Amino acid sequence: MRLVVSWIAGGLAALLPLTALAADPPPRRTEAMSFSLAGNGGNCLGCEWVAAEGLIIADAPAAFAAFLKQEGWSGCYSAEPVMLDSPGGDAEAAMALGRALRAAGCTTSVGRTVPDPESADAGRPIEMEIAGQCEGACVLAFLGGQERSPRPDQLVLSPLLVDRPGLSAAKGLAEGLMLASRIGVYLAEMGADPAFGPRLALAPDAPPQTLGAADLAGLAIDNSEIETRTPWQVTPYRGGAVAVTTHRIGPQGGDENTLTLFCRRGKPAPAALMLSRRWGADKNNVPSPEPVTLGLAAAEAGGQAVERTVADAESRETDDGWGFLTVDLTAAELAALQAGRSLTLSGGVPPNWGTDWAETATLTAADRDVVALALRNCI
């Protein structure tokens, strides 16, 4: 019996070539998927990762939960992405694992972890990443990453639902349709483009297909560079109003900057601009920005940009990990912003944070009306 419906599913540091290995790498893991903390011995962002390798079976989500407990983690850390290498496995288990990865806030990538023959450490193995693949059901698990950064041809689409002895054509079709429906719901949960769904229906005897760069971007499988910006909106606050916009580069739930523009009663400054972000659940994880600068883009092509260091910027944090950076604008800066020039507020953060804290305010004609309304109702 040939099953009519079949579903398929398919950064860290740059890949190290296999020629860097003194000998052939160990065989690829094909037993039940396991999870372990790996690292190259360095002290940097990306120097450690979670190696998730092997066949995805029913207890894969439980194995991942056991790993988190063993490490004493309540969830993943952005500096330790989950690196998958798998020949596939059970589709239902892969979706359960993907949901567990999402609940833990994990980042996913693809690669294989092998011992580094050029390094040795008596206390802990030194490892390296080489080319890996995430095949079949593994792609479903990969989509669970809150941030996903695959490289072209790492994700391989191959049939998920296969023939079983004694399975009737009618029963096989029913199972295929039910699985297709559940995967459709899962794709929506994980933020993949709905157009990915039809790509998953493939004849059981069709050859595997790899996802290229256009697929990764077009189907929102690689979401590391997706940019989302909201228009300026007026929000009531403390008897007045403020104008607010948000900007995020990366996945939903990732780092998101909020800019708030407002005026304060009894203050000589015509307006204030506040940059805020939730850095983490621990107050100690909020950086103290230094220095703080305001930069105005050039008024016209060939003009001069203007930047000033803000010595009296207000910086505060809250116990739930929010950081707030507020500066008073001069009348000239506010006028330039309202005239269409871009204004960038930035705060220096330690290099080990791996990110800048900066955001640019740019007003469209509609935005200027919103801002004017907020500035007529000071808080």
Results as ranks from 00 to 15, higher is better:
residue 340 G to E: 03
residue 219 L to C: 11
residue 104 A to H: 04
residue 191 G to D: 01
residue 299 A to L: 13
residue 232 W to V: 07
residue 378 C to E: 09
residue 267 K to D: 15
residue 171 K to I: 10
residue 194 P to M: 08
residue 304 Q to S: 11
residue 39 G to L: 01
residue 205 D to Q: 11
residue 147 E to A: 00
residue 364 T to F: 09
residue 167 L to C: 08
residue 243 A to C: 05
residue 131 A to R: 13
residue 356 D to A: 02
residue 2 R to F: 09
residue 105 G to A: 07
residue 79 A to V: 15
residue 61 P to I: 08
residue 289 P to F: 06
residue 102 R to M: 04
residue 152 P to Y: 08
residue 98 G to P: 10
residue 362 T to V: 08
residue 96 A to Y: 07
residue 136 G to S: 15
residue 165 P to C: 03
residue 102 R to H: 05
residue 339 A to D: 04
residue 114 V to G: 06
residue 75 G to H: 08
residue 291 P to R: 01
residue 169 A to Y: 13
residue 21 L to D: 09
residue 5 V to I: 15
residue 241 A to T: 09
residue 299 A to H: 11
residue 157 L to E: 07
residue 194 P to H: 06
residue 250 G to I: 02
residue 153 D to N: 09
residue 40 N to Y: 13
residue 142 F to G: 00
residue 112 R to Q: 05
residue 174 A to W: 12
residue 263 C to A: 15
residue 178 M to E: 15
residue 333 E to K: 01
residue 89 G to N: 11
residue 379 I to E: 12
residue 331 A to G: 09
residue 66 A to Q: 12
residue 233 Q to Y: 05
residue 235 T to W: 12
residue 34 S to K: 05
residue 7 W to S: 14
residue 97 L to H: 06
residue 100 A to W: 06
residue 352 N to K: 04
residue 323 G to V: 03
residue 32 A to G: 11
residue 22 A to R: 14
residue 340 G to R: 01
residue 110 V to I: 14
residue 364 T to N: 02
residue 76 C to F: 09
residue 253 G to L: 02
residue 302 G to I: 12
residue 189 E to W: 15
residue 234 V to H: 05
residue 343 L to S: 09
residue 367 D to E: 03
residue 54 G to Y: 04
residue 231 P to K: 11
residue 123 G to W: 10
residue 256 E to R: 00
residue 13 A to F: 13
residue 194 P to L: 09
residue 369 D to H: 13
residue 204 P to E: 08
residue 12 L to H: 10
residue 234 V to Y: 05
residue 229 R to G: 04
residue 203 A to F: 13
residue 329 L to D: 02
residue 346 S to C: 01
residue 184 G to F: 07
residue 114 V to W: 08
residue 111 G to E: 08
residue 5 V to R: 07
residue 197 G to I: 15
residue 218 G to P: 01
residue 45 L to F: 14
residue 72 G to D: 09
residue 92 E to N: 14
residue 304 Q to Y: 04
residue 267 K to N: 11
residue 197 G to R: 10
residue 312 D to Q: 09
residue 307 E to S: 13
residue 134 C to G: 03
residue 261 L to P: 06
residue 322 W to F: 11
residue 134 C to F: 07
residue 72 G to Y: 11
residue 146 Q to D: 01
residue 134 C to D: 01
residue 60 A to D: 13
residue 247 H to E: 07
residue 118 E to R: 14
residue 64 F to I: 05
residue 29 R to H: 15
residue 272 A to Q: 15
residue 296 L to G: 07
residue 357 W to D: 07
residue 217 A to F: 12
residue 295 G to P: 00
residue 55 L to S: 12
residue 225 E to D: 01
residue 91 A to L: 14
residue 171 K to F: 08
residue 38 A to Y: 06
residue 356 D to E: 05
residue 218 G to F: 10
residue 62 A to F: 02
residue 333 E to L: 03
residue 371 V to L: 03
residue 274 M to G: 02
residue 149 S to P: 01
residue 110 V to Q: 00
residue 34 S to Q: 12
residue 280 G to S: 04
residue 135 E to G: 05
residue 190 M to F: 14
residue 224 S to W: 00
residue 281 A to W: 07
residue 56 I to F: 07
residue 147 E to M: 00
residue 373 L to P: 00
residue 253 G to I: 05
residue 310 V to Q: 07
residue 176 G to H: 14
residue 370 V to H: 02
